[in-house]
Amino acid sequence: MNRRFKSLAATLSSVLLTLFGLTVLTFLIGRVMPVDPVIAAVGDNAPEDVILRVRAEMGLDQPIPVQFLHYLNQLIHGDFGMSVLTKNPVATDIVRFFPATFELATAALILAALIGIPLGVWAAVRQGTFTDQAIRVVCLAGHSVPVFMLSLISLLIFYSWLDIAPGPGRQDIIYDGMIDTVTGILTIDTLIAGDFDAFWDALAHMAQPVIILAYFSMAYIARMTRAFMIDALKGEYVITARAKGLSLTTVIWGHAFPTVAVQLVTVMALTYAGLLEGAVVTETVFSWPGIGQYLTVSLMNADMNPVVGTTLLIGIIYVGLNLIADILYRVLDPRVQ
């Protein structure tokens, strides 16, 4: 018990230290970058007296350590500050923008895993054959072609030429303002509202960005799965299983894959974290109002409270997913237990 408590305390300390370091770093970058945040608030043409007043209102006339202590005090009270651009508390904005990214990232990860893992396993089993090479090419293309290029090509083909997919945005204009926000996840909110047309519309709008992101992630998952599986297939327990005359399917999925699955947990966690931090380019091309776009717009406009708040959120996501991966690792791997 004592050991477990110590382990938990060590983990929590590490998490808090990481987040504190992240806060310090992001805050400092925001304060020392060569852009005046007041310009974002009042515009370049504002008179000097207004600039001075707003600088004081934003607390930017204080020394940086004082500003930081003030910010920390706010954070401890759950206040991420206000966004200059949206005029909302940053926490409110995050609650609004994050579900869009969550919806996209989760769907993309599920699709990527459903395709990437079998592909990786298949490539490993057929190592060195045409199948393996073909999968390698598909994966390389997914990982090496820039996402904006894939996104634009996808829009051009499926939206513009073939007319089988909707354009950018989260929903068709006729549904604008029709669905009450409950979870922020549009596919769920439309179901809650009982509007199935709106549900299909939301799903259709998700399809392209999800597939693009899934393709990008799938490529990584498949390559990693292949590498893990090749190692696993060399294991003596696999050779033994084969020698016992078990079918190939049983050997692969029953004996080799459980070992691979343990390692894949980390891969999946990092992939998911990467997707959740906001697929900025995909969100931009598909006009998807997610956290990546929020962060980028804030950064470009020197609106630092959202930048620091969102960076902290991303840090928490990374740390959280790593923790979950850690726990799953222990659950899936009896040796660690």
Binding site: L152, S160, P168, G169, I173, T284, S287, P289
Partner: peptide
């Protein structure tokens, strides 16, 4: 007025009538 950042997306949406 829809916030569409990417000019290429704006162009496609215009041509499609969206």
């Amino acid at each position: 007025i829809r916030h569409v950042v990417d000019p290429s997306s704006q162009m496609l949406m215009l041509q499609k009538g969206d």
